[in-house]
Design a protein around this nucleic acid. Structure first.
Lengths: 258, 258
DNA sequence: CAGTGGTCTAGACCACTCT
DNA sequence: GAGTGGTCTAGACCACTGG
């Protein structure tokens, strides 16, 4: 099936898409993680297309997490995506045992402003503590996060301190709260300068944006906006995954009509 | 800190990225949902860049779900993403009350094959029923799904029937199972021909791939691979969202240095 | 330094939608 | 047919990496 590669054909399939398919088959069959592909100029020549067209195909494969391109180095086969737990309380919530997955970057305190104020359901003028953190998995930065906490949610927070101490203090007080509700959403986004820097990637990098709301005592006590590298991460939710392995082909597992 | 954004250089920010920022500010300030932008040739002229460069900026904004481009029509401001519940049992699992969100497309039965066999933990040769469905929200196709069920999980399924009946039958028997475990993952992907068709989008469309495993009696009874349009969908998990509204800026809510 | 991917250009033609 | 976005080309230069 899919007896494509027909040079003379009626199917107006774009060249770059066809190219992607061919490349995908090739790397699945003949390449393994970490191996480098021939350079773009050679590949484009080999396939008889302009370099821009070849790049369009590589763009797709990179978006799918199959390739990694490094300036000055080359294009490599990417490692399979790492499963990153985001739902379990132990991972998303500060502290809680071995949650050393998160490393605090900095902490600021400022009035909420209109946007954050509305999202948190507080006056625009109320002070909000914002802790920025980075999440590491297997020695690699995979996510950045801004954790916003209204000051009214932490009434016992001690006065001003050095930034390091304040971050610690906010997180510590947060752990002690009894959370009785949480809600999450996931959507596609691109990393702006700040997040991109945390993720050690260029601006425009596609990310999975996870927005988490935590409630305690019937009110919102924290809002976390986490951005996960879409190329390397597979977010996992719920119980601890029944079956560990789940290859998951892009889509069609059942090969039908061609 | 991070006193970046020095106007007078040192930072060779790519043109297309700067353009994206400018366009984003403009549409936030002066355009509203459904409005059409000037055409690409005019925009590129107005900004003094090549059309390809302008398109690179539009590509980004489209990936972020801010723009929709329609061939022959123009580039329009996209509506805000719709929140789509995926975690709640009522939505993901067949039947269950008003789950008319899903419309069955077809149903096939075939041996699992190596990939599916491994994912389901069954022999490659065991028959697997696959129901393909489409999910609609507000009159629009937002997701396609392949629901795989090992035949051994439905021992009481009647013999062969017409396709329509078989799909109904599989779903009905599935509802009756007592699910005692489920697990989900989300990752970025692109729609291949088949899914793309279901979503009424061209191949290569970015999608959020949700993989759900359902267990009953300690064994895997169903594996669902759902592909949601990444441009229009925001997946929601957990309890019924505490606060309905969550504007969620791309990332930086705290506006720093300028 | 040579080699890689990243950006940008100016132009061409195609496929689609509407009138 | 006129106007739109989608694809493709051929070439240039830049930014980064490594020896």
């Amino acid at each position: 099936m899919v007896a494509t590669t027909g040079q003379l054909e009626a199917v107006p399939e774009p060249k770059y898409w066809h190219l992607r398919t061919v490349l995908l088959r090739t790397i699945d069959a003949e390449f393994s993680t970490g191996q480098v592909l021939p350079n773009e100029r050679e590949l484009s020549a080999r396939f008889g297309v302009a370099r821009a067209t070849l790049r369009q195909a590589l763009d797709q494969l990179e978006l799918e997490g199959r390739l990694v391109r490094r300036r000055g180095i080359g294009t490599l086969i990417a490692a399979p995506r790492v499963g990153v737990p985001v739902s379990r309380r132990e991972e998303g919530w500060p502290g809680t045992a071995r949650s050393q997955a998160w490393r605090t970057v900095d902490c600021t305190s400022a009035p909420a402003g209109p946007q954050l104020g509305q999202s948190l359901g507080i006056p625009d003028t109320e002070i909000v503590h914002t802790v920025r953190r980075v999440r590491m998995v297997q020695g690699q930065n995979v996510a950045g996060e801004s954790l916003h906490v209204p000051s009214s949610a932490l009434p016992h927070l001690p006065g001003f301190r050095a930034e390091n101490d304040r971050a610690r203090s906010v997180l510590r007080h947060l752990e002690r709260l009894e959370v009785d509700g949480e809600s999450r959403s996931v959507e596609l986004g691109v990393a702006e300068a700040q997040e991109a820097a945390l993720l050690e990637r260029p601006p425009g990098t596609p990310v999975l944006v996870v927005t988490s709301q935590y409630a305690a005592g019937g009110r919102l006590v924290a809002l976390a906006v986490s951005t996960y590298r879409a190329d390397t991460c597979k977010l996992t939710f719920g119980e601890t995954g029944l079956v560990e392995v789940t290859p998951v082909a892009g889509g069609a597992v059942v090969a039908t009509a061609s």
